[in-house]
């Protein structure tokens, strides 16, 4: 921000809180297929933890945690994971996103559970990248 000045208490609280938010976000992503939550919610919480550090410590320090250039490639990788899961199922002989035909060892039920996990991870990565990238672009506009 323009009127940013360093505040020790805010930085201490946010950097203590941020790893716990990230841990809970990872829990939400990886347990998304049998409890409330999933890739979108967990990814949004992960992005909120990153944005919390950006708000508290300022853009320059937060670059060390999550560089600005990382947002868009991370989003693209997330979409590729999602799409790649679907195409891998197609290559295995089924239809698009039919996880039972994934070219991996295991029974059909276990493969379905694993496939939805891949999709959740892809969605989570895409949401993290794009939300942090939206925040960065919003903050940067008009400063050049």
């Amino acid at each position: 921000m323009r009127d940013y000045e360093s505040d020790d208490i805010v930085i201490l609280v946010s950097r203590t809180l941020s790893p716990f938010i990230m841990l809970f976000a990872l829990y939400v992503i990886f347990h998304g297929h049998y409890s409330p939550g999933g890739g979108f919610q967990g990814g949004t919480m992960l992005a909120a933890a990153v944005i919390l550090i950006r708000l508290a410590a300022g853009m320059d320090i937060a670059q060390l945690q999550f560089p600005r250039a990382l947002g868009m490639p991370l989003g693209a990788v997330g979409v590729l994971i999602y799409f790649g899961t679907g195409v891998a199922a197609m290559l295995g002989g089924g239809s698009f996103l039919d996880y039972a035909y994934l070219p991996l060892p295991g029974a059909a039920a276990a493969l379905r559970s694993l496939g939805i996990l891949f999709v959740e991870v892809g969605v989570g990565l895409a949401v993290v990248g794009i939300l942090v990238s939206i925040y960065d672009d919003l903050l940067e506009s008009g400063e050049r």
């Binding site: 909120a48 944005i51 939206i134 919003l138 903050l139």
Partner: peptide, 26 residues
């Protein structure tokens, strides 16, 4: 509707508020 409520709390209470505040600063 636990799933919908979770999404609403995370998105509405977490991220969109921050984006609105940044827009007001701008």
């Amino acid at each position: 509707a636990v799933d919908v409520g979770f999404t609403e709390a995370v998105v509405g209470g977490g991220v969109s508020g921050v984006l609105f505040v940044v827009t007001i600063f701008k």
